[in-house]
Amino acid sequence: MSPAAALRTALAVEALKLRRSVVARIATVLLVVLVPLASVGAVALARSPRAAGPTAAKLAAYATGDLATTHLMVCAQVLSVAALAAAGFFVAWSFGRELESGTAGAMFGLAVPRGTIALAKCLVTLAWIAACVVLTVAVTLAASAVVTMSSGEPFDGAWAHVGTALAAGLLGGGLALPFAWLATVTRSQLGTVGGLVGVVALTQIVVLLGGGSWFPYAAPSLWTGMGGADAAAAIGLPNLLVAAAVAPLAVAAVVRAWRHLTNV
């Protein structure tokens, strides 16, 4: 079997697994439904007269400004974290399940190389999370249009932040691929999820210590304004390129690890 044919076969199989995955279905629904609801709901709550005390303080950044623009700004902030979480849980399932259950031993008898299977898993994951991000932003745009126009405000400002929301979501999804490597070396879905939770906690510590701009897991969120205007201004193209470089490096590491898998 040629390398191209092997990759096509592996992609078809992994795409079928994705369509039948309960984890992927739940993650897709949560992204496409909850992120738009959170984006519109947070702004509505921030501008409600009932917002007071700690709630008003936390949502103060959303209380003023163009309504549609603020919806997309919140969407970008939420997506930068939600896409990482969704893709992280999926790669824990996709890579960890077969290794944890022992069924990966059957792969040693396949005509498709194990490295090609790992590459297909990564590509299918990236395609799925990219589709989820695009659909989530589209739903947020539609919900924002309904709310904005019903309130009599212009909708023009939303388009300026569509690119930011898409980029933040794609960067967040790409940052989940190192956990595919973690699932491979630990052969544990639960261990991979634990690593994801640990990285999220570490990110908070790094940001508090002032090193978030060069930390890949913090830069996309800070860029969207989650840490405030000053933190967002400190994020430039080099910082985002560092975050973007994580995905291809992780793919290379995962493919190499799968090529060296042992049937034990």
Rank of each mutant, 00 (worst) to 15 (best):
A68E: 11
V74T: 02
A87Q: 13
R50A: 15
K58Q: 14
A63K: 02
R50T: 14
G88E: 12
D66Q: 04
L59Y: 04
Y62M: 13
A82L: 01
A82E: 02
A63V: 06
S80Q: 06
L72E: 09
R47C: 13
R47Y: 08
G53F: 13
A87W: 09
A68Q: 13
V91E: 11
T69I: 00
A60G: 02
R47Q: 09
L67N: 01
A51G: 08
T69K: 12
G88Q: 11
V78C: 00
A52P: 00
A83T: 14
M73L: 14
G65I: 13
A57M: 07
A56I: 09
G88Y: 10
L79D: 07
M73E: 11
A51T: 10
L72N: 04
L67E: 03
V81F: 11
A83C: 10
A51P: 03
A86E: 08
L45D: 02
S80P: 03
R50L: 15
T64S: 10
K58G: 15
A82W: 08
V78H: 02
T70V: 14
T55A: 15
Q77P: 01
A85T: 12
A60K: 06
S80C: 07
L79T: 02
R47L: 08
F89G: 10
R50W: 15
A46R: 03
P54N: 05
T55H: 01
A61T: 08
L67I: 09
S80A: 15
R47A: 10
A52M: 09
R47I: 07
A52Y: 10
A52L: 12
S48V: 05
A76E: 02
T69C: 00
D66F: 00
A86Q: 08
A52Q: 15
T64C: 00
V78M: 04
S80R: 05
A63D: 04
A57C: 01
M73S: 14
A92D: 10
S48C: 08
L59G: 08
R47W: 06
A56Y: 07
L67P: 06
A76K: 01
T64Y: 00
V81K: 07
D66W: 00
A76M: 09
A56Q: 12
A85V: 15
A76P: 00
G65R: 08
G65K: 10
A68N: 02
A63T: 05
A87K: 07
L45A: 15
L79M: 11
A92I: 05
A82C: 04
G65D: 09
A68M: 15
M73T: 15
F90Q: 14
V78A: 09
A86M: 07
A82F: 13
A82T: 10
V74R: 06
A63L: 04
P49R: 08
L84S: 10
V74S: 03
A83V: 03
H71I: 05
T55Y: 07
A87F: 07
A52H: 13
A57K: 04
R47T: 08
A85Q: 12
T64H: 14
Y62L: 15
A57S: 05
G53L: 12
A46V: 09
C75W: 00
L79H: 10
A86K: 11
A76L: 02
A92F: 12
A76R: 03
